[in-house]
Design a protein around this nucleic acid. Structure first.
Length: 463
RNA sequence: GGCGCGGUGGCAGAGUGGCUAUGCAGCGGAUUGCAAAUCCGUGUACACCGGUUCGACUCCGGUCCGUGCCUCCA
């Protein structure tokens, strides 16, 4: 069996992945806060961890992937106050949109997708455990985690307590014993969502939900914990603190999750996405113009730990690649499958090396070229097997490009007939007009020895 | 200021102590009524300065530049 290499943020080294229990691999990735459409950066996280899950599933018999929905949060409350929409309407609406959009990008639904609001009891229990063990204290209606009670704090992001204090740029609330202490529970106003607790009516802090839900659904310790690079500090650092301290493993940062995986950011045309620049690209909008598998390939075109600059050209390259895949598939349509791999043509091997998708795409191109050229040393049945397997693990679906309505279908056929008549009459002006008309509708004409064919295209070849 | 990451051919982007990544774009050719696609040919790049080495883009040190995080943030 091939072994998977993964870069572990906790040790800052690439390591050979060894599951705690090879019969059941468990991973958790921090999911979205549902108060708005997911942007392309959220999509990258979803695609990266979907890919990791697919790779794991190709190697191990059982894999459980948990990714949460944060449906209680101050930004959600702010959205509620601004729009007047009930909280649960907002959260359910954007949860569904998120799942639909990610599905369009080829992301399988997580095996378990827990909602924070459905785990308040577990969070309260964990907070009580932290208080009992001397790691948390109630003050002024809040419950805070006491960072000095956990000397190992900062191990993931590599910062000492002193450094954080020096870098603090936020006014320290008066009820904190230490400036680094963070909120586990906070009081809610009557017009804010809240739950009864030993500390009065309130709601959980941001970090505790992931600690509570991962423990409940996966058990501790589990294999892999992931999320965006910006979550490393403070979110993941605080999760580690809560989970290790609540479970009595104050001296072992890996008592929570063994391997930490963080994906890099997406920039747009060289700039960070920000509301002030107005360059927030929403997955929801991109899907309208570009097929999901193309967007997915574009998101996988850079290594997951590197920054990815989203540009017209990145999308264009992905379009060309997807187009090539579809054409190769056409060539292989009637070829039988031979389950025999050819290592030098197998892109999946690159994925086993810390999800090296750019290299995998390079090998994929080489594979596709072999299919067109039919190099004598490789036979198509094997190449077909590798291609199928690769697309499955990459999560790139073969969407039939011919999918158009029957009505426009007959319209296209009529135009094609007219064109072939024009060609027969050497009226090439009219023939070219028809081509242009169809291209404008996203239909490409392909002249073959057997006559003209057509297919739906997702972009113009003139670009 | 602290903790990180990165600087590869026009662009995107892997990788390696000595052997062509790959793709996009471009150019020439085959093919085509014209295209598209495909095929053939074409580009010798690794920020700068030292060091180690028989040999470094690849290892070490320094410099410059860019960039992320430092309690909203994928």
């Amino acid at each position: 069996m091939s072994s998977l290499q993964l870069f572990n943020s906790l040790t800052r080294k690439k390591e050979s992945f060894a599951p705690l229990n090879p019969a059941h691999v468990r991973l958790y990735a921090c999911g979205p806060t549902v108060y708005n459409y997911a942007h392309i950066g959220n999509a990258r996280m979803a695609v990266v961890f979907d890919l990791l899950t697919r790779v794991l599933k190709s190697l191990y018999p059982k894999v459980t992937y948990v990714s949460n929905i944060t449906d209680v949060d101050d930004k959600i409350i702010a959205s509620h106050k601004a729009t007047g929409e009930p909280i649960d309407v907002i959260t359910r609406k954007y949860e569904k949109i998120y799942n639909d959009d990610m599905a369009a990008l080829g992301c399988a639904a997580p095996d378990i997708q827990p909602r924070a609001t459905e785990h308040i009891g577990e969070m309260i229990a964990m907070i009580e455990a932290l208080i009992e063990r001397g790691h948390a204290y109630a003050a002024d209606g809040h419950v805070l985690f006491n960072v000095p009670s956990f000397p190992a704090y900062g191990g993931l992001s590599g910062r000492s307590r002193d450094e954080q204090v020096a870098g603090a740029r936020v006014e320290v609330a008066s009820y904190k014993k230490d400036s680094a202490d963070f909120v586990l529970w906070k009081p809610s106003e009557t017009n804010e969502p809240g739950w009864d607790s030993p500390w009065g009516r309130g709601r959980p802090g941001w970090h505790i939900e992931c600690s509570a839900m991962s423990a409940k659904h996966l058990g501790l310790p589990f294999d892999i914990h992931g999320g965006g690079a910006d979550l490393k500090f403070p979110h993941h650092e605080n999760e580690i603190a809560q989970s290790c301290c609540a479970s009595g493993h104050e001296d072992d940062l890996s008592a929570f999750a063994k391997v930490w995986v963080h994906n890099g950011f997406v920039t747009v045309e060289g700039e960070k996405m920000s509301k002030s620049l107005g360059n927030f690209l929403l997955a929801h909008d991109l899907i309208k113009d570009v097929p999901g598998p193309v967007l997915r390939l574009a998101l996988l075109s850079a290594h997951y730990r590197q920054p990815l600059d989203w540009s017209e050209q990145v999308v264009h390259q992905a379009q060309k690649l997807y187009d090539k895949i579809l054409r190769a598939w056409d060539v292989l349509k009637d070829v039988a499958v031979c389950e025999e791999s050819i290592p030098q043509k197998d892109p999946v091997l690159a994925l086993y090396d810390d999800l090296n998708t750019p290299k995998a795409i390079g090998v994929l191109n080489s594979l596709l070229n072999s299919i067109f050229v039919t190099e004598p040393q490789y036979d198509l049945p094997s190449l077909k097997y590798i291609l199928l397997n690769t697309l499955e693990i990459l999560g790139v679906e073969l969407v039939s490009p011919e999918a158009v309505s029957a009505e426009s279908n007959s319209e296209i056929d009529a135009l094609l007939e007219e064109r072939s008549a024009a060609k027969a009459a050497k009226d090439f002006t009219r023939a070219d007009e028809i081509r242009d008309e169809l291209v404008a509708q996203g239909i490409e004409i392909i002249d073959t020895p057997e006559g003209a064919k057509w297919r739906k295209i997702s972009y113009s070849h003139s670009t």
